[in-house]
Each structure stands twice: as C-alpha cells, then as structure tokens.
Amino acid sequence: MSKGYHIVVCGGIVPDPLQRLEPVSTPSGPALRNEMMLPAVLDPWAASALYEAAALAKKMPESKVWLVAAGPKAKLQQVMMVTGQKVPFELVAIDAPAGGFTESFAVAGLLAAAIKSIPGLDYSRLLVFGGWESASRGAGSTLQAVGELLEISAQFQGVDELAVAEDGSFTVLERVEGGRHQVSKCSAAPAVLGWATGNLAEPPNNPQVGMANMRAIMPALQKAKAEKLSAEGLSFQHVALPAEQRETRIVKDTPVDVIANEIVDWLRGAN
C-alpha cells in the first residue's frame, strides 16, 4: 500500500498586508475600497500550509498536493503567477467573491464540494490543510466547517509542526495559551490541519516548478465555475477604521540618561 498522502490545501487570497485598506458599503454588504485594484497575495497562513504540504509530499513518495482556492478569477490568476513559482501543486479554482465580509460557512460549502469533486482523491490518505485563520475574516471557522462537511473528526488548529511516524500515525503541535504547544497524537489520516506559521520559510521562485504548474493552472482557471456566496440573516450595522491616530512626541538629541529615566518613570506609572 502506498504511504503517500493526498494533501488538499485550502487557501484564499487577501490584499497584500502592506496595503492601506478602507471599508466601503455596497448593495451586497461591506467591501474594501478599490478591492479589485488592490494587489493580492495568497493568505499568509494558508501559504505556510502550502509550503508544509509540499515539504511533506516531497518526503512521502506517492503523495500529491492540490490547492483549492476560491476568489475572483482575475485575482486568482494574478496570485497564481506568484504562488505557482513556489512549490508543485495542482490548482482547483472556484470563481467566487473573496474578502473578509463573506460568510465562512458558505465558502466552506464551496471548498468541500470542490474537494469532493477531485477525481481519484483517496480519503484514507487525505490531509486537508489550510491557514488556521485568514488575514481577512480571521475567524478560524472555515477549515473546521470544511472538515465537518467531509466528516473528518480529527482536526487541529494553530499547527506549527506535523511529524509523521513509520506506521502512518502522526504527532501535531498546536498553539495554546501561555506560549506553549499542545502535543497530540493521531492514529491515521484523514485529518484537518489549520496551520499557523510552521517551520518553513517562503521557498524561492523556481521557474521549472512554475512552468509545470502553469500547464494545469490556466485550464483550472478557465474551468472555474462562477459561484455566489449566501449570507443568510447576516447584517452589518457599520464597518469603520479606528479613529486612532496618535500625536507622536519625538524625543531626539537627548542624553541616554534622560531618556532612560523618562522610560523608567513611565514603566513605574509616574507619568
């Protein structure tokens, strides 16, 4: 029997974190100003998941990685031009709205349906990866819901490490309170793992990987079905940027002793 995994990474797209974001209201609910113009990136924690998936697949022969991504087709294409250069995967694209104000369970429904439609996917070797929270909604609920819809009851969130043993069991480190990790052992796949940062840096661009990926990415994008997301019963009263802009007092050309004294007074609550 093959020991490899079928790893499906769920990864959305988000605005580049260095961009300034501003909410606007639209007839279909809140959105971002110039949303379609903002440069997008693969959601950072989902990107960690993708790199971890690729590294695991490399270690375990006969493994395969899919990336299931829902987002507006044009944005997905833009992000795939970059992400496609990083590690080998097969894209499953869903043409749907992306963004923080969409409903997590609606997105999960699309992702789960897309996963179910992957030909030849072996559930007994399935690991569903993704980011534990998105950089947009940041709810930590989508992957759990995907797991539920696929009836997978071994789930882990805030994962920084996955170690697979000879017998197919694996050990997972999840972030918990107080700067610690919880260690869990799981007897076998299938499982859902919502990754935090993990232990791998962003891989450098690899043109060969890029070329191989692109052959499948373009058809996958062309094939992507346009889907709507429902938001039954959800209403936003308002969305606003925090008003907070501080008046920064800049202290310069001041002796270190004076600065240190002022800081210590502040720490002690004297000013």
Partner: peptide, 9 residues
C-alpha cells in the same frame, strides 16, 4: 476584520 484593521458591528 483584516487583522484588526477595521471594526464592524
């Protein structure tokens, strides 16, 4: 939303 960039009710 968006990693503490905007607040919604």
């Amino acid at each position: 939303y968006y990693r503490q960039r905007m607040e919604a009710q």
